[in-house]
């Protein structure tokens, strides 16, 4: 079986580590060889962060390079654009339409590229955009953005939703299980 490459990108502090933990645990339970490369340290302080998840029969490299990602799951709009060169020509971008200004935009040194997603779509990139923050709030917590996006990703992977829900039960504290399951299904069943 070929290796599947998933990038989870966003802004430090958005909860991408929990998303990759959940995905990693699920893939191990499904008997794949897995590598999950995380970012710790300085970049976590509001910087651009990327987690690489790779699985298949045998995984060597921990990283994903230009033209290699099957999926890019982005927690923020322009972070999807920042990493889009890593996508395979037939890969898919799943993006939360939330916008978080980086410091150069805050200080006025740069503009937020408002049309980045349109440009990606126009260039033939398959983009699945959703307002994951609203869906997370609907599920009961703004912090569940990560699980909404995992729900959306699950739609495209060959692992049944029930398996994801079982892993969510193991990965989160009991009192947050219902919110997270709901968040997962909202992402999974989302239609534009």
């Amino acid at each position: 079986m070929k290796t599947t490459n998933i990038m989870i990108v966003g802004v430090g502090g958005q909860g991408s580590l929990l998303a990759s933990k959940l995905l990693g645990q699920l893939l191990v339970a499904e008997n794949y060889d897995v590598k999950v490369s995380e970012v710790h340290g300085m970049s976590q302080r509001g910087g651009s962060v990327v987690t690489y998840v790779r699985y298949g029969d045998k995984v060597y490299s921990p990283v994903i390079c230009d033209g290699e990602a099957d999926f890019i799951v982005s927690f923020e709009t322009i972070e999807a654009a920042r990493w889009v060169s890593c996508l395979k020509p037939d890969g898919k971008v799943i993006v939360n339409t939330q916008k978080i200004d980086p410091m150069p935009v805050i200080t006025g040194a740069a503009q937020y590229p408002e049309n980045a997603l349109d440009e990606m779509t126009a260039g033939g990139v398959a983009v699945d955009a959703l307002d994951a923050l609203s869906l997370a709030n609907e599920a009961g917590s703004s912090k569940a953005v990560n699980i909404v996006l995992m729900g959306r990703l699950a739609k495209y992977l060959d692992i049944p939703a029930e398996r994801w829900l079982e892993e969510i039960e193991k990965a989160v504290k009991p009192k947050f299980v219902d919110i997270n399951k709901k968040a997962f299904m909202l992402g999974y069943n989302y239609s534009c």
Partner: peptide
């Protein structure tokens, strides 16, 4: 599109 850098803050 020029993507502004997002340094840690």
């Amino acid at each position: 599109a020029e993507i502004p850098v997002r340094p840690p803050v």
